[in-house]
Simulated assay, not measured.
Amino acid sequence: MSITRLIMGAIVLLASGAGWAADFKTVGAAPAVLYDAPSTKGVKLFTVPRGAPLEIVLTYGDWVKVRDVSGDLAWTPARGLSSRRNVIARAPNVKIRAAEDDASAVVFTVDKGVLLELGEPGANGWIKVRHRDGLAGYVRGSDIWGY
């Protein structure tokens, strides 16, 4: 009977993991260097520009393992990341609308890879965003990465 409880507990734990929200940070004032190990002695893999969102996968001391928009995993010092939140458009011609509705007027359109400042979540999968030029509106959560 205890083996059954153990197995059921493991299944519940694994199933509940799918409901956890991802933790994202934004690259701070300087571009972030990503390494293959949690050390500056590791191989430098690539550099991520300032303002880009990164998903925090694991924290190890002063280092974090992150996933970028393309899905690549690497390590970077935690001190180079900010809690300010940005997102990236996933596709070309993403429409930012005046309200949380597909029938709402298009305020502006962004191309794939454009950074937007994350606002508050709206209803039914819509997210409020703001472009660096000051324009703001709502976008479907499926059209952006990093929230």
Rank of each mutant, 00 (worst) to 15 (best):
Y35M: 08
N93M: 09
P92Q: 13
K44G: 13
I127S: 00
A103Y: 08
V57R: 00
P38Q: 09
V69R: 10
E117G: 12
V114N: 07
A103Q: 08
D23Y: 09
A15G: 07
K112F: 02
G113N: 06
A123D: 15
W20R: 05
V57I: 11
G125L: 07
L115F: 01
L118F: 07
A105I: 01
Y35E: 01
V12N: 04
A52T: 14
S39V: 11
G80W: 08
A99S: 12
P31Q: 15
T76V: 13
I56K: 02
A123K: 15
E117F: 06
E117H: 10
A91G: 08
A74W: 08
I11K: 09
R50H: 12
K41Q: 15
V110P: 03
K65H: 10
D101C: 02
Y60G: 00
K41C: 15
G51K: 12
R67A: 11
W20C: 07
A15Y: 09
D62K: 13
A105K: 04
D102A: 07
Y60L: 05
A18S: 12
F24S: 00
T47V: 15
G19Q: 10
S39M: 05
V94I: 10
V27P: 01
K44H: 11
G51A: 08
R84N: 13
S16T: 14
A30E: 15
A30Q: 13
A89T: 11
E120H: 11
K25G: 02
S82R: 12
L81F: 06
V57W: 03
V69M: 12
G61I: 02
N93R: 15
G113V: 05
L45F: 09
Y60F: 11
A22W: 09
V33D: 03
A22K: 05
R85T: 11
E120W: 05
A30F: 08
K128M: 04
L73H: 12
A21Y: 12
K95P: 05
K41R: 15
I11C: 10
G17L: 13
G119T: 04
G17C: 14
V106T: 10
P49M: 09
K65L: 12
D101I: 01
P38E: 06
R79P: 03
G19Y: 13
G119S: 11
P121M: 13
W20Y: 11
T59M: 04
G71R: 13
S82V: 08
K95W: 04
I88V: 15
T47P: 03
